[in-house]
């Protein structure tokens, strides 16, 4: 069975539960099909304030402000959005603010839109060059533990952490 055959509606539950257990109070996102089900779960959760963004860098600044005020935030985006965050990540590094990013990958496993490939292939190195610790997950069964570990690293050790959710898991979008 391929990982993509595990439905998003199932694995998004593990992510949502891990975010709730980590005490996440603000969930900021630019919509992505790979996060569709998780976004719906966060909207339905009264303990989470969802914030829709016009561009991903807004979410980096929002997460810093939330933490300054004593609240934990998580930021959901697609890999193409990572490129929009580069300079704002200097705020996170210089102030050593915790940051938890969940990034659904495009431009890798079976991609059919070539325009996604440039940023998708550079997502991990760009994040690493910006001081963000990168975790990869390609198996649905690992998601809950990966999110919990990323949140603990981010908020207890005050580090920026991005969990890259592989396209193998999300499923390659086709245009047919």
């Amino acid at each position: 069975m391929s990982e993509a055959s595990v439905p998003q509606s199932v694995w998004s539950q593990d992510i949502h539960r891990a975010l709730a257990d980590a005490g996440i109070r603000q969930v900021a996102y630019v919509p992505d099909a790979g996060h569709q089900s998780l976004i719906e779960r966060c909207h339905a959760d009264a303990s989470m304030r969802t914030v829709r963004l016009t561009t991903e860098e807004e979410g980096i600044a929002l997460a810093a402000g939330a933490w300054l005020g004593g609240a934990r935030a998580a930021l959901l985006m697609q890999s193409s959005g990572v490129g929009n965050c580069v300079n704002m990540l200097s705020l996170i590094e210089e102030c050593r603010c915790p940051l938890l990013m969940l990034v659904t990958m495009r431009g890798e496993w079976g991609e059919t839109n070539p325009w996604q490939v440039p940023m998708g292939q550079r997502t991990a190195p760009v994040l690493e060059r910006c001081g963000v610790i990168v975790q990869h997950v390609d198996r649905a069964g690992d998601l809950g533990a990966e999110v919990a570990a990323a949140a603990q690293l981010a908020f207890v050790s005050a580090r920026a952490v991005a969990l890259l959710i592989g396209q193998r898991l999300v499923g390659a979008k086709t245009f047919e």
Binding site: Q26, I60, G65, W67, L68, G69
Partner: peptide, 22 residues
């Protein structure tokens, strides 16, 4: 006071995160 020396374009969103938290 939270003073920014960089992060141009981010001040209002830091304010939003802070306002929602407090």
């Amino acid at each position: 006071n939270f003073y920014l020396w960089g992060a141009m374009g981010g001040a209002a969103m830091i304010g939003l995160g802070l306002a929602l938290a407090q």
